[in-house]
Amino acid sequence: MTGFVQNAIDAMALGSLYALVALGIGLIFGIMRLINFAHGDFIMLGAYALIVPSSAATATLLIGAWPTPLLIFAICLFVILVALGTERLAFRPVRAAAPSVLLITSFALSFFFENLVIMVYGGRPKAMNIWAGLAEPIIVAGIRIPMLQLITIAVTILLLLLLVLFLKRTPMGVAMRAASEDFRMARLLGVRANRVIAAAFAISGFLAAVVSLLYVAQTGVLAYHMGVPLVLFAFVATVVGGMGSLTGAVLGGFIVGVASVFFQVVLPIDWRPNRDVFVYGMILLILLLRPSGLVKVRAVEERV
């Protein structure tokens, strides 16, 4: 029983991370049909911003040494600015192009950021610790629960609630939902394209910053490709959930997280390195049964 609870918390924490990443990708996809591969690099840049830029083998904390509230604020601001900058410089000029061009643009951006980091920080992974105290487990009724996992789950729930409030209650949120329903119609009714898209990128950047802090606190390792596995699973999560649906993205994120932990526990030891094969395989199976994903969105299908 205790084993089950521990695994369940593991699964929820991992699922939370995937859900946040999938949400950051899903928000932008809904509005401009862009699958932002560079989202993983927003996460990576947020983490690298914690240390002093140098190619030295050991990491020296820069922003990472600041008091916690200031640290969180600075990293969020930094990643939001990066996200807004990429929107303005790279995505806005190609906004009218086909989704495949948008996608490959994000691919190119990702390539650009990763090589920039290799140039400035060097290609080797670096060990880094922030918030070491949070890794300490707390013991509730004989179950050891890492504090960080509880925080991850709590932060995710809080952010989801805030996002729902934002989308339902504020004018910008309503404009954003209208834009993802039918972008052209929304523009005809006075929604400003540039502002809505910039807002989506800002929120997406904010979510990426939160993920980068939670993720790096958990793993304690910086690497230029650290965002890639997150973003791959988040992509898959958005498809499983149903492309264009934010509920679907969150649901998909949790499904992928739970499946990863499930296979980790259930598979015989020899097979565990191949866990991801099973996760991906399960996803293909879901897609075979429900080709449009779990939450079907009308706006994504072409109207006749």
């Binding site: 898959v236 191949n274 897609l287």
Partner: peptide
């Protein structure tokens, strides 16, 4: 692998094919 993927709509097929690459990458590594 194409049999299930080809039934998906455009972008979903793109991402699902990425899952296939992920699968073979992990499998061949191990």
């Amino acid at each position: 692998v194409g049999f299930p993927i080809m039934r998906l709509s455009g972008l979903a097929a793109s991402i699902a094919s990425l899952a296939v690459l992920g699968m073979f990458h992990t499998f061949y590594t191990n």
